[in-house]
Design a protein around this nucleic acid. Structure first.
Length: 560
DNA sequence: TCCCCTTTGAAGGTG
DNA sequence: CACCTTCAAAGGGGA
């Protein structure tokens, strides 16, 4: 397993050092952005080039240097971070959930009761929060709950999360902790969260937070969970239903439980009720509590198996299926986790509000993260995936595909497919020719770590050119949007069927070498920019004039 | 009201 | 194995 600390405390050490780094990052951003928030755009742009050079590398040393620049609000942030760093350290030791080992550590990050993967939206994903819990709670006899999985679900055991929310402090890793940040601070979360015992919204009966609620905590390492497994079981049992509802359709895996390995099973057991392993008699949430990971088809169209989107179908059938099939969302990847965490921060720091712009910035920041930093997210993402797989053994990413699973169909529909599925989709406007020139061979994703299967792997060779590679490989394509997506339609890669057929809305660079990870103007904000590679710098210079005249908004400057 | 946009990463499908 | 496509989050903006 990729242990962050595999390098021997490297991670730990990294964590400690990371803190400064993060601060630095924030500071850097905030310093510049606080000022720049109102700063004239031109100003920002003009300075961009210079700053980019300065930021050419996000070395730890650099971060360290900047560390001193703590901002006013950094104090509170610092606190949170402290907690988290502590948690991380402990995790290194064996996981957050070695309760016995850390009896004194009162704070556990707990997820919003809602399953992160359910996006019904009914329950605010709110998320994972720090749970001020009494460790003794973990001592709850497991036998009680586990035996009778069908025991009535006490209302007090419902998904409401009793938590202590440290809403204001968003630790860089919070996303990892809190599933939906935006749901970040779910207003719906009862104030009772301040107390270990919470009144169940439904019954009003006080209940103690269940460890399972902590589950979303990915830092939790499978191996470390065992100790708390049974304590959770009681909760699960009482729940009477899986915390994470199992898709009615059932999982592909006939015997999900068998698919689990020891470590995972422990994880699951601790986090999820046995029901999760064994599909409940009913298809959906008996409690009616929406699962975070499960999205109502109404919200998210579920592939019904045919190539026609539900909306296209007759209302009745579609509806039926919707009711039947909850939409299980994909586990968040490292970047998504990062985004969740950082989005609010970025939004707060800049005037930009459009997600597209924010995401661009986040993308840049992501690349500017150190390996260690990214590794953390990769690790969390990995755990997310593990957990998800445990929760939904039969689930496949394909399940969420709206488009036809059949490639042949895709080929047939080809261009029309996109429009068929979404009439509102952009028309095929192509800027084909020129785009081809921009391309640059990059890693398929161009990510710094190239999404290593194991974060540790990435960490393993810090000196590895991964980061450099990605950055350099990344073309600084200032011209983005228009052709970004459009060109897909007309780019005729070797795989005519694949590329053309699905040239759908997805603008994944991977599909086309032309514009890979274009760097938008918005992301060029000095404070937000990550150290540009030489390539970037060159591009910046070459396009400097453009920047000057370009408004700070999503860049839509077509390639020339 | 719905979809687009934008990011990176993961998963799955195809050749 | 390489490549391609889709989806995950988010929320302003546009149709």
């Amino acid at each position: 397993m990729p242990q962050l600390n595999g390098g021997g405390g490297d991670d730990l050490g990294a964590n400690d050092e990371m803190i400064p780094f993060k601060d630095e990052g924030e500071q850097e951003e905030k310093i510049s952005e606080n000022v720049s928030a109102e700063r004239d755009l031109d100003d920002v742009k003009s300075s961009l080039v210079n700053e980019s050079e300065n930021n050419s590398s996000s070395s730890d040393s650099e971060h360290a240097e900047r560390r001193p620049q703590t901002r006013p609000d950094s104090e509170s942030y610092e606190k949170t971070r402290e907690y988290f760093s502590e948690a991380l350290r402990r995790q290194q030791d064996g996981g957050f959930f070695k309760s016995p080992h850390y009896p004194g550590y009162p704070f556990l990050m707990i997820p919003d009761l809602t399953n992160p993967y359910l996006s019904n939206g009914s329950l605010s994903p709110g998320a994972r929060t720090y749970l001020h819990m009494k460790w003794p709670l973990l001592d709850v006899p497991s036998s009680a709950g586990i035996k009778d999985s069908r025991s009535p679900t006490p209302g007090h055991l419902s998904n409401k999360v009793p938590v202590v929310q440290h809403g204001h402090h968003v630790h860089p890793l919070t996303p990892l902790i809190t599933y939906s940040n935006n749901e970040h601070f779910s207003p719906g979360t009862p104030p009772s969260h301040l107390s270990p015992e919470i009144l169940d919204p439904k019954t009003g009966i006080p209940r103690t937070p269940h460890p399972s609620e902590l589950s979303p905590y990915y830092p939790l390492s499978p191996g470390a969970v065992g100790s708390i497994a049974h304590p959770l079981s009681w909760f699960m049992q009482h729940q009477g239903q899986p915390m994470y509802s199992i898709p009615p359709g059932g999982f592909r895996h006939p015997y999900p439980a068998l698919a689990m390995n020891a470590s995972m099973s422990s994880l699951v057991s601790s986090r999820f009720s046995p029901h999760m392993v064994t599909p409940p008699p009913h298809s959906l949430h008996q409690t009616g509590i929406p699962h975070p990971a499960i999205v109502s088809p109404a919200i998210k169209q579920e592939p019904s198996g045919d190539n026609i989107s539900p909306s296209m179908k007759s209302p009745v059938p579609a509806k039926k299926e919707e009711d039947k099939k909850p939409h299980i969302k994909k586990p968040l990847n490292a970047f998504m986790l990062y985004m969740k965490e950082m989005r609010a921060k970025v939004v707060a720091e800049c005037t930009l509000k459009e997600s597209a712009a924010i995401n661009q910035i986040l993308g840049r920041r992501w690349h500017s993260l150190s390996r260690e930093e990214q590794a953390k997210y990769y690790e969390l993402a990995r755990k997310e995936r593990q957990l998800h797989s445990q929760l939904y053994p039969g689930w496949s990413a394909r399940d969420n595909y709206v488009r036809t699973p059949s490639h042949s169909q895709q080929v047939q529909t080809c261009f029309s497919t996109v429009y068929f599925l979404s009439a509102s989709k952009k028309q095929c406007v192509q800027y084909l020719p020129s785009e081809k020139m921009c391309d640059s061979p990059t890693s398929s994703h161009g990510s710094m770590l190239d999404s290593p299967a194991t974060p540790s792997a990435a960490l393993a060779s810090p000196a590895a050119p991964a980061a450099t590679h990605s950055e350099q490989a990344q073309p600084l394509s200032l011209t983005t949007k228009p052709e970004g997506r459009m060109h897909h339609h007309f780019s005729l890669p070797g795989k005519a069927s694949g590329s053309t057929s699905s040239s759908s809305s997805s603008s994944q660079p991977s599909s086309t070498p032309i514009l890979t990870r274009p760097i938008p103007f918005t992301s060029l904000h000095p404070s937000m920019l990550s150290p540009p590679s030489p390539f970037h710098q060159a591009a910046l210079h070459s396009h400097h004039s453009l920047f000057q005249s370009q408004p700070l908004s999503l860049v839509t400057k077509p390639t020339e």
